[in-house]
Nucleic acid binder design. Structure first.
Lengths: 200, 200
DNA sequence: CCCCAATATGACCACCCAGTCACATGATGC
DNA sequence: GCATCATGTGACTGGGTGGTCATATTGGGG
């Protein structure tokens, strides 16, 4: 957590620091990101940074929180409107996609965080992963009880698949208009590869 | 490509160098891996390394090739035996899993390579991805013609999904003790989330 | 045995890093 | 104007990096 001095800063200065940090952590994973570059980018002294944050990790986790906070504002909309399972799912990805479009740097920060291998981040990663898994699985279980989702699938495996696809999907098409491909991908997950006799 | 002096080395010395490099590149992505640690680990002088390889990248790509060469020995078995589409797919991931079990370090090397963000590796990565895409789509088209795969799905989208999931799945192989999980994941892709009337 | 090319060496270079600390500057209350 | 405390500073430390190069060692052919 940042020190109180950080929050006493003028909003402009605070934003300048955040922005410089976001840019660096979007370009590089935690280990390769350079504090020296951040401070020189926002024009403050190296020592000042240590008045605001305990260390590099403290700053990093603060920025990661910022990114996820903003992302949550988007994806929560998907769960707000009450519709069927597959529509909610599609809306979830659409919102992730909008987030990536509107805040590409924050999106890169979350991506770098998610596939980070740094030892110091392991516990944080595990925490985030299990939270997401829990939320998704609750949502999935409802749909299974409602009879729209195949009950024979392992919910953990379903989460794994959706998460993997979501990550790459937003990564790959973050800057293009590709609504059609988007839906085709969700169709793959929805219908499965195996031919469906009942649809023919 | 290594210089000729490298191949003139005694097999023991060559293996010692390879082993030390493999360990370092398994632990760290390219950018963070340390040449100094590699040379001290295998007990040769720093300068000697530059008698064998042009630079760090040259050594790295050689090691990555080693890893993928070994991996190919495994996954090619999946395409050797003539069976149905879904069995081949399962066998492919089973072989990947076995590779990860038997050569965890090489497995980590391929993982680190695959989600590397280093600029110098971008072209190498793109090459690998397009090769995979071509192979997969040929394989998929056969299965569509054979009537086992839903012809309404966009083959490009199918590859996208399998690529994304396969990547993350293989990533997990190192730490998951459970060899069953990958089958459950393949089932998600095979059957799709939507309930299948014909199976109930 | 000696010569010479191939190979091995490690001190060294320039550069980068996170983090520190003695000191400078600012502001606040008196 | 003064004293006090919070904030800002950047040179510095100790440690790391990839890569170089003058020099030393080796080993085979004449």
């Amino acid at each position: 957590m940042p020190k109180s001095t950080f929050f006493n800063l003028s909003p402009e200065k605070r934003c300048a620091i955040e922005q410089a940090a976001i840019e660096e952590f979007a370009r590089n994973p935690y280990e390769q990101a350079s504090l020296s570059k951040i401070v020189s980018a926002c024009g403050i002294a190296k020592g000042s940074m240590y008045q605001y944050f305990d260390d590099k990790l403290d700053l990093y986790l603060y920025i990661v929180d910022l990114a996820y906070g903003k992302k949550r504002q988007f994806v929560n909309k998907a769960f707000a409107l009450e519709t069927d399972f597959f529509s909610t799912l599609e809306e979830y990805y659409r919102q992730s996609y909008l987030f990536a479009q509107e805040y590409p740097l924050l999106h890169q920060v979350t991506n770098n965080f998610w596939d980070s291998r740094a030892d110091v981040l392991h516990s944080e990663l595990a925490k985030g992963r299990s939270t997401r898994a829990r939320d998704f699985q609750r949502f999935l279980t409802e749909a299974v009880h409602g009879g729209v989702v195949n009950p024979n699938l392992n919910p953990e495996a379903v989460f794994f698949v959706y998460h993997a696809v979501g990550k790459d999907l937003i990564d790959q098409f973050g800057c293009e208009e590709n609504g059609k491909f988007f839906k085709e991908i969700l169709d793959v997950l929805r219908y499965g590869l195996m031919i469906r006799e009942e649809l023919d």
